[in-house]
Design a protein around this nucleic acid. Sequence first.
DNA 1: AGGAAGATCTACT
DNA 2: GTAGATCTTCCTA
Length: 194
Amino acid sequence: MTQEALQRDFYERNTKAVARDLLGKRLVRRLEGEALEGIIVETEAYYGLRDPASRAYSGVKEYNRLMWGEPGRVFIYNVHRYWMLNVVAHEPGDVGAVLIRALEPTAGIDVMLANRSVPETRELTSGPGKLTMALGIDKRLHEADVTEGGGRVYIASEVREIEVGTSHRIGVTTDLPEELRFYVRGNPYLSRRR
DNA sequence: AGGAAGATCTACT
DNA sequence: GTAGATCTTCCTA
């Protein structure tokens, strides 16, 4: 079993490349001594001032300043009544973050079921708001470092054969011309099938 | 201080 | 497929 967390240099690359490469990796959330885990199966890349759909589009604010900061940090923000889990990722001097949109649960499923009011494992983490609820993730994890294995959240490498699909980002009002959503083809835990 | 927007989810038809 | 719930943050006054 690969226990080591992906290191800083993994996140210090073009946001789009990091979003694609996070597919198939294992997200680990430590909560009250228990490890809740899932394979990342859907992500989206968000840039800075050139991306109208990005939280960084209108400039630095207190809540979004981490998008300018150190890659590998957790960036949390709110939509409706849900928390969105992002990992800061960009080349040196750039701005950007990757939204984790869906997971395939692999450990701690009983706890996840208790955190959600749905009976279907399929519905547990198949959306950005759903997965933060299932994993007990909220604003308190803002700024956490995912490169620290054994921390409250980290991401570990994993050996898994996957086929990557792309599409436009979901739910954004003004998208960029390029496709910035990445997903594992055929995976049952996606927020959308394609 | 108040209103509006939003990278959503659930339930219902 | 569509409506409504609901909460954090921002913008204007």
